[in-house]
Design a protein around this nucleic acid. Structure first.
Lengths: 196, 196
DNA sequence: ACCTGAACACCGTTCAAGT
DNA sequence: ACCTGAACACCGTTCAAGT
């Protein structure tokens, strides 16, 4: 039967989840789809574009409409969803960061737009809402990539003995929320200044 | 004559500056040093460790002592220096991001420490000063990597025609300062709350 | 239109053996 | 101690040729 883009992206996501981004190669993907590597290049211009499609698949659950009247809450919900989506796949944060940097993920761009609208509604000047939105995304991607790589080293048993009883070693989710609060508060301050 | 770590790191930096991170391979580095690839593995455990050493070299100018009594100013100076150091080398931000993620750069860790001290002095609770510092670093690395990749696409002539006269297309430095201001203001708000 | 075969030009890493 | 030679097990991408 014919090879479709969806099959390719699905299989790529499966390899990602089971073996991580280092094993997500064009050759391996082709092998598991029982085609020749060259076949993939009929459907995708290059590896970056294919990874972009995988990133968009990963981010699908983070792209559902957010209906909250409060801009602070809207930022928090979108970022929590984004983080959840990234943590749901092995090396998810790394994959999406790379695709975002390469400009190959339409979904991240969508999320940036949503955040920019929230920033605008908060009172950030129009020409600053984009930078504010990107600042948030840099943070979420950086923090989540860091958290995820530590998690994965941890289950691999490569991290120094954590005293799991004595020192509960700070729930990473609360560290994430704190960093995000910094940004939300900063946006509130900037808006207050441009109003006055 | 003998091969020393310094020679290796210097040549690696030269390749980085001239051809970018994609061409900074162990084999090419060895070739330009007139040695066999295997020779590099006598001096470095693996490629990640070597890249970490290059990252530390890149960050040297950003690690000089900052003597400013004001914590806001100290954060601004350190981040400006960090950004300058990254922009001074082709793909500098990408290199340092990767080394930071892999935990292979002592210099970034040092910068995180300096930022954490500034946050503590601002009045952030001790257990939050680390997360606050890392939030800043995620931002600087993300924003600078983005800026740098756009710059490099630009000189390569791959970007859509910028109307260089009509729309001066927002000085990237000011976008950077704005994002940083968000974080500094957020830190000020958090400290004010923990005092009250 | 869609895919194979086969090649091109590479990678990082290891390790016995040499000096 | 420091490095070579040679191998192992791979990469991404292209493209004439087949169906």
């Amino acid at each position: 039967m014919q090879l479709h883009k969806r099959d390719v992206v699905d299989k790529a996501t499966a390899i990602l989840d089971s073996y991580g981004i280092a094993d997500l190669t064009m050759r391996r993907l082709a092998r598991e789809l029982d085609v020749t590597p060259g076949a993939l290049y009929w459907h995708f211009a290059n590896k970056q574009q294919l990874l972009g499609a995988v990133a968009d698949q990963v981010l699908r659950p983070a792209c559902t409409d957010v209906s909250s009247t409060d801009w602070r809450q809207r930022i928090r919900v979108v970022c929590a969803r984004l983080r959840d989506a990234l943590l749901s796949h092995t090396d998810g944060a790394e994959l999406v960061s790379a695709s975002f940097a390469a400009g190959q993920s339409r979904s991240v761009e969508h999320i940036v737009t949503v955040l920019a609208e929230a920033a605008a509604e908060a009172g950030i000047a129009a020409e600053r809402s984009g930078p504010a939105a990107r600042t948030i995304v840099y943070y979420v991607l950086g923090a989540t990539a860091d958290e995820q790589s530590r998690m994965q080293l941890d289950v691999a048993g490569a991290l120094p003995e954590r005293q799991s009883v004595i020192e509960p070693s700070a729930d990473p989710g609360s560290g994430f929320d704190f960093g995000l609060r910094l940004l939300v508060d900063g946006i509130a301050v900037q808006s207050a200044q441009s109003v006055s």
